[in-house]
Amino acid sequence: MPANPKYLTQSKWQRFSKIIAAILGGYLVAISFHLALASWFNRADVIITMAFSGFILWVALMVVAFLAKNGWNIWLIYLGLSLFFLGIFFLGQAYNPIAK
C-alpha cells in the first residue's frame, strides 16, 4: 500500500536536504557528542561505549531528521549541536590535557 502523497515532501531539495542531514548531520552530532564526553571522562571507557551508543544515537538522529518539516532547519539544528559539543570538547582539552 503506497503512502498518501499529501504527507510526502514535494520539494526535491527538501528531500535531498533531509537525507543528507540524516546521514551526515546525524553522524556529526553523534561523533561530536562522544568526543565531548571523551574529553571530560575516561577516554577508553567512552570509546568502548561509543561503539554501541554512537550507532543508536545516529539512528535516532536519522529518524528525527525525517520527522522534521524543513530540511534546512534540521541542518541548522544539527550544525549548532555539533558546534556546541565541539566547544565542550575544546574546553575539556584545555582543562584536562592529559588522557586518563
Rank of each mutant, 00 (worst) to 15 (best):
M1W: 12
M1Q: 13
M1P: 14
P2A: 15
P2T: 12
A3G: 11
A3I: 12
N4G: 04
K6V: 15
K6D: 13
Y7W: 13
Y7N: 06
Y7C: 02
L8N: 11
L8Q: 15
L8R: 10
T9C: 08
Q10I: 09
S11N: 08
S11W: 01
S11I: 01
K12Q: 10
K12W: 09
W13K: 15
W13T: 15
R15G: 09
R15W: 13
F16D: 13
S17T: 02
K18F: 05
K18L: 03
A21Y: 08
I23V: 15
I23C: 11
I23P: 05
L24W: 12
L24Q: 10
G25V: 09
G25E: 10
G26D: 02
G26K: 02
G26S: 03
L28F: 14
V29R: 05
V29Q: 06
V29I: 06
A30V: 01
I31T: 14
S32F: 02
F33N: 11
F33M: 10
A36G: 06
A38N: 05
A38R: 05
W40N: 11
F41S: 04
N42S: 14
N42M: 09
R43D: 01
V46D: 02
V46T: 04
V46P: 01
V46H: 03
V46S: 00
I47S: 11
T49E: 04
T49G: 00
T49S: 09
M50F: 06
M50C: 07
A51K: 07
F52V: 15
F52L: 15
S53K: 14
S53N: 12
S53H: 11
G54D: 06
G54E: 03
G54M: 00
F55Y: 10
F55C: 07
L57C: 00
L57P: 02
W58P: 03
W58H: 05
V59T: 08
A60G: 04
A60W: 05
A60K: 05
A60V: 02
L61N: 00
M62D: 06
M62F: 08
V63S: 04
V63A: 01
V63T: 05
V63F: 02
V64F: 09
V64I: 14
A65D: 04
F66E: 04
F66H: 13
A68I: 00
A68L: 03
A68G: 05
A68M: 06
K69A: 04
K69I: 03
N70S: 14
N70V: 10
N70A: 12
W72E: 06
W72A: 13
W72M: 13
N73T: 14
N73G: 09
I74P: 00
I74Q: 05
W75S: 00
W75G: 02
I77S: 08
I77W: 04
I77K: 06
Y78L: 06
G80N: 01
G80T: 05
L81S: 02
L81V: 01
L81P: 04
L83P: 03
L83V: 15
L83T: 10
F85A: 00
F85L: 00
L86G: 03
L86R: 07
L86F: 13
L86K: 07
F90G: 01
L91H: 10
L91V: 14
L91G: 08
Q93I: 12
A94L: 15
A94Q: 10
Y95G: 11
P97D: 00
P97I: 01
P97N: 00
I98F: 14
K100N: 15
K100R: 14
